[in-house]
Amino acid sequence: MIEVKKLTKFYGPNRAVEDVSFTVEKGQILGLLGPNGAGKTTIMRILTGYFQPTSGSATVAGFDVVEETMEVKKRIGYLQEVLPLYHEMVVSSYLEFVAELKGVPKNDRKKQIRKAMELTRTNDVSNRIIGRLSRGYKQRVGLAQALLNEPEVLILDEPTIGLDPKQIIEIRELIKNMAGERTVILSSHILPEVSMTCNKVVIIDAGHIVAEDTQEGLLQKSEGGDRVSVKLKGNLTGEDIKKEFTKINNAGIVSVKNEGSSTVIEVVRAGSIDIREDIFRTAVKNDWVILEMKSAALSLEQVFLKLTTREE
């Protein structure tokens, strides 16, 4: 649905994005993740036809963003970071304006506006002046705008920026509901955002892609993956235990630590197979009493930091 090939964009001598390639399949939600200034907005602006790339190419719904810009624009719904709202207008007449601008046929306009307002739950503010709405409602009107003309592709730049936690959850749900059959690209510098809504993640740093995978894939790729920590009864001596646990298939680094009258062992999982059962059997075989066992997933946050933090 969206194909980006070796995209590069310079602003004068400054490189914003370099050699970026990725694809998004129909129906996927792609999260563009990266710290501020990484080039997320630039990529989106190229996809929407607002900017020309310096080199490389991109297609949206089969149309080239440089050669067939108008066709691309007809098929996307775009929510820019700075909300595209005219503050003096009433919500319903603003949506009417956008529908006309996007060329929604006249007899279809009312229906589509109603649908977009229902989906974004903006019905109750339809007669209010946009400038006087709360930030959360403004965001929703922005989303409603993007839905008009039933676009195949939604491009949402930082859709939850500046919202309070409750509103963030609401908007997140909204995006999931809006997605449906559509292909969605959303950008964020906040991780839970991406980990909760997207099924594919591209991490960008300083204009380059540093990782591209599904969320699970990313977690596994980052060294170590999950770790299991086991607390055994009694103050046991280290070497024996370490040797026993290392024998387990797929176990990585094992560390042993004495904590008062118990021993804590941390086993890092190397592969993708669950090792908890093997840990249990090893303990039983050696007659060790398990007091506690927990598995801690490395969060996307840690992966993100690992990938975007470079040693100076």
């Binding site: 602006r45 929407t48 607002y50 820019q80 595209p84 996007k102």
Partner: peptide
């Protein structure tokens, strides 16, 4: 100033 120019430029209009 409002940034709505970006909206106009990304809408299907010349």
């Amino acid at each position: 100033k409002l940034g709505t120019i970006e909206f106009l430029f990304t809408s299907p209009i010349k």
